[in-house]
Design a binder for these strands. Structure first.
Lengths: 179, 179
DNA sequence: ACACAGTGATTTGAATTCGAAACATGTACG
DNA sequence: CGTACATGTTTCGAATTCAAATCACTGTGT
C-alpha cells in the first residue's frame, strides 16, 4: 500500500455533506434517546436493546445470541447482563443443552419496564427523526440505510470472534417498536 | 400528556425499518472507521474530528469552539486535548483576548497526520457507505440527514422528562450542541 | 479413555466518556 | 472599589466499553 501518495480521489462535496450530516444526526439522536431512557426507566440504550431482543424472542437466549447486533464484545454483555440481573429485569440460568452456555430469561419486571418506556421511545423517535421528514423521505431513508446496513453486515462479524468466524444468519433481529 | 397509558401509536413498519437500519448502519460504520483510524494513525475518531476542525479552521480555536459538535462534555475535550498535546499534534496556549480561554493550535505533525490518514478514511467511507448507493441516493441522503440534524440542533432540550424533575440550577455553560 | 482444538462465558485492565464540582477570570452594577 | 454573577477550563469520580487472558465444557480423533 502506498500511503504516502494521496492517490485517492477526494469525496464530492455532496458526499461529504451526506457523510457528516449522517454521523452528526445519528449522534444527536442517540444522545437524546439515551437521555430519555435514563430519565424514564433508568436504563441505557444498550439495555433497552437487550430487553427488546428478549421481549421479541420466542424464549430465553444465550449470552452470545443476546450480544449479537448490540455490543461488539462479549464482555460488554456480561457487564450489562449483570446490571440487568441486579435490577431484577432478567435472570441468568444454566442451559440444559449445553452446560457452558447461560440462558437469559426476561422477568415480568423486565417486560413491564420495556412496555412502560416503549411509548415514550416511539414518541421521541417521531419527534426527533420523523417530524422533519415526509413519507417519501422516510421510505427513501429506509431503503438507503437498509442497503448500506446489509452491505456492511457482509463484511465484519459483530460480537467479535477473535478466534474464528461465526456463521450468523443475517437476521434483522430487534424491532422493539413493533406495536 | 398521559404518560401512564400507552396512547401512542406504534411506528409504521416503514418508519421502524428506517429507524433501526439507520442506527445499526451508523453503528457499524463508526466501528469500522474507528478500527481503521486506530490502525492507520493511532488516533480515535473523536481525535480525527478534532484535527479536522483545526485543519479547516482559519486559525486557533478555543476549547469550547473545538468541543462544539464533537463531544457532549467539556471535560471530555480536556482529556482528548491532553492526549493530542502529549502526542505532539496540537499545542495549548493562552488566549490574548480572554485570559480564561485556552487557544488550541494545530502543529505541523498534527496536520501531517491528518493528511496522512485522510485518504484511507475517504476510501473506507466510500467502500462502506457510498458503494451501494447511487448518486441520487447520496443526494437524497444528504438532504434528509441535513434536515434532521438541523431539526435536532434547534430542539428544546427539555421536551419529555415528566419524572425526576429538579429545579434547574444555573445552566452550566452554553449548549455544545446548538452551535 | 485421553489429548486437543473449538466454543460459551466471565474476569481483568486500560481507555474513554460524562456530570458535578472546583477554579480562574471577566463583567455588571451598587 | 467590591460584591455577585457569568463564562472558560480543568479536576475528579463513576459508568461503560473493548480486548486479552482465563475458566469451563463439548466434540472429535486416536
Amino acid at each position: 500500500m502506498n500511503a504516502d501518495t494521496g492517490d485517492v480521489q477526494p469525496l464530492d462535496p455532496e458526499q461529504m455533506e451526506a457523510y457528516f450530516a449522517l454521523l452528526e444526526a445519528v449522534s444527536l439522536l442517540q444522545h437524546q434517546v439515551e437521555q430519555h431512557l435514563r430519565a424514564e426507566g433508568d436504563i441505557s440504550y444498550v439495555q433497552f436493546q437487550l430487553l427488546a431482543r428478549l421481549v421479541h424472542a420466542p424464549g430465553p437466549l444465550t449470552m452470545t445470541q443476546l450480544a449479537d447486533g448490540v455490543v461488539y464484545s462479549r464482555s460488554g454483555l456480561t457487564y450489562q447482563a449483570g446490571l440487568l440481573e441486579k435490577a431484577g429485569l432478567i435472570t441468568r440460568g444454566p442451559c440444559p443443552d449445553d452446560d457452558r452456555a447461560t440462558l437469559v430469561t426476561l422477568t415480568q419486571a423486565g417486560s413491564d419496564l420495556f412496555h412502560r418506556v416503549l411509548p415514550g421511545h416511539v414518541q421521541l423517535s417521531r419527534t426527533l427523526l420523523f417530524d422533519p421528514l415526509a413519507d417519501q423521505d422516510v421510505h427513501h431513508l429506509g431503503d438507503i440505510m437498509t442497503r448500506v446496513r446489509d452491505h456492511m453486515r457482509t463484511l465484519p462479524p459483530r460480537s467479535a470472534a477473535p478466534r474464528k468466524r461465526r456463521t450468523t444468519p443475517p437476521r434483522s433481529g430487534s424491532d422493539p417498536i413493533a406495536g
